[in-house]
Design a protein around this nucleic acid. Structure first.
Length: 110
DNA sequence: AAGGTGACCGGCC
DNA sequence: TGGCCGGCCACCT
């Protein structure tokens, strides 16, 4: 019997798992998809908890500037960048190149 | 119960 | 684009 708070995380995970291969999205986009555009920070918090889940491609979630703000939370230091580049996304200095091109907008689940 | 924290965002210069 | 400031909401001590 999951707590109601866990549902919130599940929602974030659901969005993250919907991110297609070679695509990225922003915390704000996910927050907006959940109807909490003003609480993008909560998405980041949820991502922190999702870090122990392999089903959630957290490396495809970056901030709205396309900066790999959370790369520091991954196992290594450049693991997040490696994963993105492995999907065809060019990353330089923790920043995604052609962010608008690889940007993917999550579906609104309300 | 209250305060501090955080993988952020938007506006302004 | 980059830096600074305020707001935002859930979680932890």
């Amino acid at each position: 019997m999951p707590n109601p708070t866990d549902n919130f995380f599940e929602k974030v995970y659901a969005i993250a798992r919907q991110i297609p291969y070679g695509k990225v999205t922003s915390y704000g986009a996910i927050a907006k998809a959940l109807g909490m555009a003003r609480s993008a920070r909560m998405v980041g918090w949820a991502m922190n908890a999702c870090h122990h889940l392999e089903d959630v491609p957290a490396h495809r979630v970056v901030n709205r500037k396309g900066l790999l703000t959370g790369k520091h939370h991954f196992d290594g230091t450049n693991l997040m960048q490696q994963l993105l580049e492995s999907e065809g996304i060019k990353v330089v200095d923790n920043q995604i190149m052609d962010f608008d091109t690889h940007f993917w907008e999550p579906e609104i689940t309300e």
